Simulated scan of single mutants.
Amino acid sequence: MPRPNRAAFNKRDSWLAVQFWRGSTVITSRIAARLEWQYGAEVSSVSSLLEEAEVRVFHEAAEEKIAAAVVILADGSVDELLGAIELMETDWRDLLIAADLAHADWSSRMDDIFGAN
């Protein structure tokens, strides 16, 4: 019996996980509002990239501050968004540090940037 193709298996599992989460809201309303403001017509594609990355890394929706950190670092640039997603995939803790969300006051920093929750 041939061995299963692990790469195909992982790709299929990732796709299934993303499809499972598509029906749920991964990005909070205040993050979505910021994405809409920064990316306009590209917001759907940008949101999908972010949601898919969260599922790949965490196998579920991540905490709001993870998505916030990506949005903060991206600052409206698709290239920077891809870099922030890559940082999240490499080490999400470094992502939080880079976005200044790794400290005890991260919640108030998010409120300052995205508005009160």
Rank of each mutant, 00 (worst) to 15 (best):
S45I: 08
Q19D: 15
K65N: 09
I72A: 05
K65R: 07
W92G: 03
E64V: 03
D79G: 00
A7H: 10
E36N: 11
E86T: 10
I85R: 01
A61I: 05
A98E: 15
V78P: 00
V55Q: 02
A116S: 11
L16G: 13
R22Y: 05
A99Y: 15
A116D: 13
W37D: 13
S29C: 11
E42V: 03
I27K: 09
V71P: 01
A7I: 07
I97Q: 05
S24H: 13
L82D: 00
H103C: 15
E52S: 03
G115Y: 15
D91I: 09
F9A: 03
V46L: 02
D112R: 12
E42A: 12
D79A: 01
L101P: 10
T25Q: 12
W15T: 10
I27V: 13
E63M: 09
D91N: 14
E51Y: 07
E52N: 09
G23V: 04
G76A: 07
R12Q: 12
D94K: 07
L35G: 02
E51H: 07
V71L: 00
R109H: 14
L50N: 09
A104H: 13
W15Q: 14
E86L: 11
A102Q: 10
R93S: 08
S44Y: 06
D100I: 08
D91C: 08
E89D: 07
E52F: 05
A67F: 11
H59W: 15
A102H: 12
A67H: 10
N5D: 13
Y39N: 00
A74D: 10
E63Q: 11
F20C: 06
E80F: 08
A61V: 03
A74Y: 12
D105G: 08
R3P: 15
V18N: 14
E54M: 04
V46D: 06
A7N: 10
A74M: 05
R34E: 05
W21D: 00
S48Q: 12
I31S: 12
S107M: 15
P2R: 09
R93M: 07
L87Y: 07
R30E: 03
F58W: 07
G40A: 05
A74V: 06
A17W: 08
E89R: 08
E63W: 13
A32M: 03
A74S: 11
E89H: 04
D75T: 04
R56T: 03
S14E: 11
A33T: 09
W21N: 00
E42K: 15
V55Y: 05
L16Q: 15
K65V: 09
A7G: 04
V71C: 02
F58S: 02
D105C: 07
